[in-house]
Write a protein that binds this DNA or RNA. Structure first.
Lengths: 227, 227
DNA sequence: TCAAAAGTGTTAATCCTACACCCATGC
DNA sequence: GCATGGGTGTAGGATTAACACTTTTGA
């Protein structure tokens, strides 16, 4: 019978997604200390043995964004033996969705920036693997549960939500079919009378918000949106 | 800047599913040492810092079953602070599918037994939580990827595969619709001429096996079976 | 009045669901 | 020859995919 070997360490990296109205972005940082000083990394920190992983993840978020309005779930553990040169450090990565509306005003701390999926960074450790894993999850999530609540502004147009889905799925979606599906889904409430012009030009469009009741139900029960 | 705190330990628990032709079962063991000696647990072991989690999981499987034919994936990390009385031990649980045909002959080591979902055991640590989490994953998996390959004998009847799906989804499925769906899916190859009686009685039924080519494709691409 | 994006319906094909009887065989 | 489970088809409704023009407004 084996005994516990109390000589591993824990860390967490955050895969933080946001949607700026146009693109899906994720946040990267820059390593300030050795090893790999200067390299791109996901926002990460070590976890002391007396700390809860999720609490540490949340407090890192609140350090970065000065707000608390996040969706956080465990992404996966990345436990490979030689992922970290200083010893056995198991990374319990988290999957985070943040609302651009709430954080775009706040200046990011030194070294952090938002990047697109396409601009591939060589990141330190196994962080590129974590990024890929997270994108896969995001893609699946969008088909089986509502997700917009955490990524869209409180009030949004159908164009925006479609743009979000196209970005996540990396595929154009038929405008009419998409709108039908969403308006029939009962997730959306048209905001009465309120209309507002889109970003630069022309005709104003209808704004919607989420029906929180329905949204909560659908988050639990899940659904199968076919796109 | 935090430094790594090399005083956590790692363990892994296995949620091992099998299908005996009638029910979905999972394997439990009995704790032989303190803490919680005598309690029911999932098959578990500590991981030394120089060991790979998945390797340890696989070698535990091979100790139990004397064979290697398994599907293994990471289930989740269970990292709660006070889940283990002896210190911070993060459990990286694995999700395993074993083929009843290959292991039902082998005698299980002392203390292990197969149980049904329904007979709920109070298990030590957070193992009941792990079980619940694994059943949720199994339910989702079955809708989005083929799964029978790891759980069914090499040659099986449509009745058996339907029985498996009904067990996993905990819901009766229409015989005709189910058979249509599967025979159309191109996953199954009828085994020419070969027919064999079911367990005790009456008319023999057609045997099928998986088209490994299609199966592999579908495993990667996924699908959406609506049940 | 023109340019730009918003909004909107129909059709054909596919898929899902519900449902019941005949057949082949072992006993 | 009969009891048992194996095997099979259809019809109605719902959902999807493909597709283009009109409306509203700001400039």
């Amino acid at each position: 019978m084996k005994a516990p070997d109390f000589s591993a360490a824990l860390s967490t990296s955050l895969m933080i997604f946001a949607f700026d109205g146009d693109s899906v972005l994720y946040l990267i940082g820059r390593k300030k200390s050795e090893p790999y000083s200067g390299a791109s990394i996901l926002p990460s920190t070590y976890i002391n043995v007396n700390e809860s992983c999720e609490d540490v993840a949340r407090s890192m978020l609140s350090d970065i964004f000065k707000t608390e309005h996040f969706y956080v779930e465990q992404l996966n553990a990345f436990p490979r033996k030689y992922r970290h040169p200083e010893g056995r450090i198991v990374n319990i990565a988290h999957f985070v969705l943040v609302n651009w509306e709430e954080i775009s005003e706040t200046e990011l701390p030194e070294g952090y920036r938002w990047v697109h999926r396409e601009e591939h960074n060589e990141m330190a450790f196994d962080h590129n693997e974590i990024v890929a894993f997270a994108y896969e999850r995001l893609k699946r999530r969008v088909r089986h549960r509502p997700m917009g609540f955490y990524l869209l502004p409180k009030e949004f147009t159908l164009k925006e939500i479609r743009q979000l889905y196209e970005e996540v799925l990396q595929r154009p979606l038929d405008k009419r079919n998409f709108q039908k599906k969403f308006t029939r889904s009962e997730l959306l409430l048209p905001i009465d009378k309120k209309v507002i012009a889109a970003y630069g030009n022309k005709k104003p469009s209808q704004l919607y918000s989420f029906d929180e009741q329905q949204y909560a139900t659908m988050s639990i029960k899940g659904y199968d949106f076919k796109f």
